[in-house]
Write a protein that binds this DNA or RNA. Structure first.
Length: 566
RNA sequence: CGGGGCGUAGCGCAGCCCGGUAGCGCGCCUGCUUUGGGAGCAGGAUGUCGGAGGUUCAAAUCCUCUCGCCCCGACCA
């Protein structure tokens, strides 16, 4: 393709709206333009990248035995009402009425539509297992879209849905997708990790997130430094500490702690480590107030607390509730003498002796409190988030933390949807059974953005070869007839060899072409100019390391064909 | 939804406090020169100052309302 025939509006300066590297570079390299918050146009260059990612996904999904179809973007309210998600999904689900006042929504995901298809068309176990996928534009009215394609409201997603006869077979389908995802992200040139993920209140069944490792990731993941364990921090199990503190219990003693409301305040004021303080967090479940005891330097994990309490509604109690329950302002809550409130505690608290706790009285804490003597704990459980330094729950090392971008998610659904929508089939014995489902998503735009997060330098993007918009950027620098002839020959020859070539045929100065080429990030640049041609060579520059190689034009194609895989 | 910030030329911004001719850099157009890492000179075009009301002789500037966007948080997967 010639640059003059392609809209590639590169920007010298970074637009103010962009915050992350990938967002800035996608705008600067002319891949995308914003239409509204979280809604983008893919410009020619951006679309080429998207198509590359889609093609890799398509090949690997087909290879894994999934079949492609395409569902509508609009779906009728009735389907969503059947599973209860019409109400449950909230404002993220964009709803509208057609001219006949019938209610519809824009699909944020397609479990309902695909399950409806299954129950209409599939009768027998002989037709199973089945796995359907589509690559399609989704719409979720995200509360806060950000980072360009990283978290948009409208975005392209590959979603797949498997239907199996039983749990065992479903597990096989799940594993096939898990393996396919590994191949897909590897082929996209990404450094990633599959981590155990939260299964929410559906519970029980497996879920893995595929995380691209990048500092700008919105998720925190923990992994074993010497083993294979990796999990979303929301999910990571924390083992109870093996040893009890051996200190002898000292007498309980109140201390004056003026205006010390936070762990930080108190520990600084008393000059002790946060690990010797136990914070008392009051949560409202909608019907109840619960006190949760967590060691001062640990982070409460609301997902775990929710799961433990078996509630769907959980939030820190508001100040009015805290004052009513404790009789003190926020910041001085403690378990001693706390009435009419269930008290649960994290495992770590059990191992502690002589801790500091709030006294349920303004400007007062207790020191040397001990749970077996001074207050009652209903139950100890895993209620905090893992942190760096914790032992791996698989006992294969010590945990470290890193940030990740969730590019894929595989999920065992079980019979949640088949049950709600009566998606059944007849088994070998003529019994009616519910299909066991799985669902599998990949964010296409997010995958492309992640690749930029991992592959860039100060000059611009450094595309991994398999998803680069073009393989070769051809840069004639001079206007001479000789340059023109050689450039045209190289262009034809490279294309004939199957390489995708972007030919910068603009009448621009060398510096402009170099800088745009570095920004756009094709893996190879070929520089053609009178200076080189006088010696009978052109330059082949590798974007990744900047190394320039002088080659006779006739050798260039063979050279690139040989290097393209490396 | 709570907190903070920003809307001025295609892009990046100044001007606003203290009301009085709308500016700078880049980009764009024309010409000449230049031509291997974002050229030089000369000339030129481009703004409902996000929108609506109000105050005032006079509003980009002050006041009220509104819309949009960005950031932090809550929320969601």
């Amino acid at each position: 393709m010639r640059t003059s025939q392609l809209l590639i509006p590169t920007l010298r300066e970074a637009p103010g709206e962009a915050e992350t590297v990938s967002h800035t570079l996608m705008l600067r390299a002319g891949l995308i333009r914003k239409v509204a918050a979280g809604i983008y146009t893919y410009l020619p260059l951006g679309l080429r990248v998207i198509r590359k990612v889609e093609q890799i996904i398509r090949e690997e999904m087909n290879r894994a035995g999934a079949q492609e179809l395409l569902m509508p973007i609009a779906s009728p309210a009735e389907l969503w009402q059947e599973t209860g998600r019409w109400n449950f999904y909230g404002k993220e689900l964009v709803r509208f009425k057609d001219r006949h006042e019938r209610e519809f929504c824009l699909g944020p995901t397609h479990e309902e539509v695909i399950t409806d298809l299954f129950r209409r068309e599939v009768r027998s176990y002989r037709q199973m297992p089945l796995n359907f996928y589509q690559i399609q534009t989704k719409f979720r009215d995200e509360i806060r879209p950000r980072f360009g394609l990283m978290r948009g409201r409208e975005f392209i997603m590959k979603d797949a849905y498997s239907f199996d006869q039983d749990e065992t077979s479903a597990r096989v389908s799940y594993q096939k997708m898990y393996d396919a995802y590994h191949r897909i992200f590897t082929r996209c040139g990404l450094t990633f990790r599959a981590v155990e993920a939260d299964t929410g209140l559906i519970g029980g069944s497996s879920s893995h997130e595929f995380m691209v490792l990048a500092d700008t990731g919105e998720n925190t993941i923990v992994y074993s430094d010497t083993g294979t364990y990796a999990a979303n921090i929301e999910q990571a199990e924390v083992l109870p500490p093996p040893d009890m503190d051996t200190e002898v219990a000292r007498p309980l003693c109140p201390v004056h702690t003026p205006h010390c409301r936070t762990v930080d305040d108190v520990t600084k004021f008393l000059n002790v480590s946060p690990a010797h303080l136990v914070k008392t967090l009051l949560y409202s479940t909608g019907t109840d107030t619960i006190a949760v005891l967590i060691r001062g330097d640990h982070e409460a994990n609301e997902v775990k607390i929710q799961r433990f309490l078996r509630v769907t509604d959980l939030a820190l109690a508001d100040p009015a509730v805290v004052e009513r329950v404790t009789g003190a302002p926020v910041g001085f809550a403690g378990p001693i003498g706390l009435q009419h409130v269930r008290i649960i505690a994290d495992h770590a608290v059990k191992a502690l002796r002589n801790v500091i706790v709030g006294a349920n009285q303004r400007d007062t804490h207790y020191v040397d409190a001990n749970w077996d003597r001074d207050f009652q704990v209903e139950q100890f459980a895993d209620l905090r988030s893992a942190c760096a330094g914790d032992p791996s729950p698989k006992k294969d090392g010590t945990l470290k933390t890193t940030k990740g971008i969730e590019v894929g998610h595989v999920f065992m659904l079980g019979t949640k949807y088949s049950e709600a929508m009566k998606a059944s089939f007849l088994d070998l014995h003529g019994n009616e059974c519910l299909a066991v489902m799985g669902c599998y998503g990949i964010g296409v735009g997010r995958t492309a953005a992640s690749a930029i997060e991992q592959n860039h330098d100060a000059k611009g993007i450094i595309w991994p070869y398999p998803i680069a918009p073009f393989h070769v950027h051809l840069l004639p620098l001079t206007q001479s007839a000789h340059t023109a002839t050689i450039t045209a020959q190289l262009y034809d020859e490279l294309q004939a060899a199957g390489l995708e070539v972007l030919w910068d045929d603009r009448d621009e100065r060398a510096g402009v072409k170099f800088n745009d080429a570095d920004l756009i990030g094709a893996p190879f640049q070929i520089v053609v100019g009178d200076k080189g041609l006088a010696e009978g060579v052109v330059e082949v520059k590798t974007r990744k390391d900047g190394v320039k190689l002088k080659l006779p034009p006739a050798h260039v194609t063979a050279h690139l064909l040989q290097r393209r895989t490396s």
